[in-house]
């Protein structure tokens, strides 16, 4: 059926009264996500979405009042590290940070702290997650994917939508789609999600969408060769990216000759993973 989120997910939104926070809260709510509350310090006691969702001053208050078990963060980059610490300290086991542009040293502190608390973080700089027909946490448009048995994991945002959309057009649905984000230091990596898909009885095939920079795709290839029994299709963005340049995502950079698309494609092909030439081909290779 799904990993990480489903119809039982009780979600709060940190930064619910901001522009993006409010817009996407409405979208998530309309999709059927169980949004139980929001947090904006100083606005506790107010209501969002025409009185449908209560706003709290702190994550702790929101958790105490609603029993929330997941938080999605829409606060600006300079406040996002504090929002992640706050959610972890309030006992939220699954944090999804959409915010782009968090300083990397902040992220190293956040990640190391959350690891000690055994809290799972998705992102930052990610589109969040979608379990079609059940729950949507983040900004992935709900109307571009249908329920199905393909698990999708990606470092990208809109590129992932592309793939979901192409899959839908061929009648292929997703079990869960997880956007792990494009930052060099993030909360959850490819292999964490591959492992979850491998153990999810309702996921039968897996799509991995990677890009230049770092070695996470190579590690995923190694994991696929050793641990994955389910068929995988991959796509790597950045074949034409010049070295030494940061391609939008903080983590998408070829450094010292390492992290090229060619290396990643080779590693994945070696591991028996089919690699698509362009995103629309992914859906065809899944058939």
């Amino acid at each position: 059926m799904s990993i990480l989120i489903d119809k039982n997910t009780k979600l709060i939104v940190q930064g619910i009264t901001g522009n993006e926070g409010l817009f996407h809260t409405a979208q998530m709510f309309a999709y059927g996500t169980n949004v139980v509350g929001g947090v904006t310090p100083g606005k506790g006691g107010e209501w969002a979405l025409d009185g449908k969702i209560p706003v709290f001053d702190s994550v702790k208050m929101a958790v105490d009042a609603t029993g929330a078990n997941c938080s999605v963060i829409f606060v600006p980059a300079r406040f996002a590290p504090d929002a992640m610490f706050e959610a972890a300290d309030a006992g939220i086991p699954l944090i999804v940070c959409i915010t782009e542009g968090v300083a990397v040293q902040d992220m190293m502190r956040v990640r190391n702290y959350l690891d000690q608390k055994k809290v799972r973080l998705i992102g930052p700089n990610c589109p969040g997650m979608l379990t079609p027909g059940q729950s949507k946490v983040g900004i992935i448009p709900g109307n571009i994917a249908i329920p199905g048995n393909v698990g999708v994991v990606s470092r990208s945002g809109t590129l992932t939508y592309e793939v979901l959309y192409a899959m839908m057009n061929l009648g292929l649905g997703a079990s869960t789609c997880v956007g792990i984000g494009g930052d060099p230091v993030n909360g959850t990596n490819f292999i964490d999600v591959l492992d979850m898909f491998e153990h999810d009885p309702h996921t039968e095939k897996v799509v991995l969408i990677g890009e230049i920079g770092g070695t996470d795709e190579e590690k995923a290839a190694e994991f696929a060769a050793k641990k994955m029994t389910k068929p995988m299709v991959a796509f790597i963005a950045g074949q034409t990216a010049p070295p030494g340049k940061r391609m939008g995502h903080a983590g998408a950079i070829i450094e010292g000759g390492a992290g090229t698309a060619a290396d990643k494609v080779l590693a994945l092909e070696h591991a028996g993973v089919k690699v698509a030439k362009h995103p629309e081909e992914i859906a065809t290779l899944l058939k």
Partner: peptide, 24 residues
């Protein structure tokens, strides 16, 4: 393009179909 991953992919697919991207 909106989104870094899709922007890279757009460059890649332009190249795949015989063009050369002018920018990211």
């Amino acid at each position: 393009v909106n989104g870094a991953g899709l922007a890279m992919t757009t460059m890649d697919i332009v190249k795949l179909f015989g063009g050369e991207p002018a920018n990211f």
